[in-house]
């Protein structure tokens, strides 16, 4: 009898435990039901895999260090976003895969699901915003020129009849072609595949000037043997904001990233990251870009927004 009684109470205890557990589980489900995860966040929670795009040669935003790991200003931001995703989905074991992207394939790879988001050097503009969603902007640039020291080219008006190199598919590409057509400047325009190739075209003397986002020009210059040989010049032809791209309609991820970026910008954390990449020596050669923060960027950090470039 005793024995059976004991056994009965043990069963009761187990039953009670199960009931408690079931209650807890039900509560957890109820809480989850309040905010069912959708889009990328749901996928991350289910599979524990997140795929992030990066650029391999956009100094100092996103590029390889000596061990072929992506580093840079934008990558620091991406990593903070990943931390936040890890927290919100409760996947401490999140497996992050980094995939190299180019200016040409970044939109397609995002749309077809190869990557989940990217924070690199993508200008937030209206034609792209038809295909993807942009998060809050995290950088502002002006498009300017780089020439060899002592070159007679000082500004865009001096480019008449000259050969200019730009990155294929960049905003500079559009602007310089429009300028050429509007003002009949008779320029030869070379569209190079990436930033390194653009600079190769400039440094071998094929082009007399290279037009690009000023921060990227400073990055290319920092890579050269003798940075003092190259001068960044010219009135900015446009001001543009970089944003991270997420898939169109991936509202939860966008909200998460918007909030993360806004918090970083208003708290001053983003300014610290800026200082690290633009005002201090950076890998691979320990050069300092020495590129002080512009007023437009200070304004952006004070009032985070996801407005496309004009």
């Amino acid at each position: 009898m005793d024995h059976r009684l004991k056994a009965g109470s043990r069963t009761a205890a187990i039953r009670g435990g199960v009931a408690l557990f079931a209650l807890a589980a039900a509560m957890a489900t109820a809480w989850a039901a309040e905010t069912p995860l959708t889009g990328t966040l749901k996928k991350v929670k289910d599979d524990g895999v997140l795929v992030v795009g990066f650029r391999d040669a956009s100094i100092p935003f996103s590029y390889y260090d000596v061990n072929q790991h992506p580093i840079g200003y934008s990558i620091d931001l991406a990593n903070l976003v990943i931390d936040r995703i890890r927290q919100d989905t409760g996947r401490a074991d999140l497996n992050v895969r980094w995939i190299p992207i180019t200016s040409q394939n970044r939109i397609s790879l995002l749309q077809n699901g190869t990557i989940d988001f990217e924070c690199t050097t993508t200008t937030n503009n209206e034609s792209r915003a038809k295909q993807v969603d942009f998060t809050n902007n995290f950088f502002e640039i002006g498009t300017r020129l780089m020439v060899k020291k002592g070159s007679p080219i000082r500004d865009f008006t001096d480019l008449k009849g000259q050969t200019v190199v730009v990155g294929a598919g960049t905003t500079s590409d559009k602007i310089i072609r429009s300028l050429n057509a509007d003002k009949q400047m008779d320029m030869n325009i070379i569209s190079a595949k990436d930033h390194s190739e653009s600079f190769l075209t400039l440094s071998t003397g094929r082009a007399k000037a290279m037009m690009m986002d000023d921060a990227l020009l400073a990055g290319e210059r920092a890579k050269t043997k003798d940075p003092a040989e190259w001068v960044i010049t010219g009135t900015p032809q446009s001001f543009e904001a970089y944003g991270c791209m997420v898939r169109k309609g991936d509202a939860q991820l966008k909200a998460l990233m918007d909030e993360t970026i806004a918090k970083l910008e208003t708290s001053g954390k983003m300014s610290t990251i800026y200082h690290k990449w633009f005002m201090s020596p950076i890998p691979p050669k320990g050069l300092n870009l020495d590129f002080p923060m512009s007023d437009t960027m200070k304004k952006l950090f004070a009032h985070p927004n996801d407005k496309p470039a004009a």
Partner: peptide
């Protein structure tokens, strides 16, 4: 197209860049 000649695939790439309609 990798050295800059805008032949058929080079133009396609450019079209993607300008219209975002790959």
């Amino acid at each position: 197209s990798t050295i800059g000649l805008l032949e058929l695939s080079g133009q396609a790439r450019q079209l993607v860049d300008y219209t975002a309609q790959p």
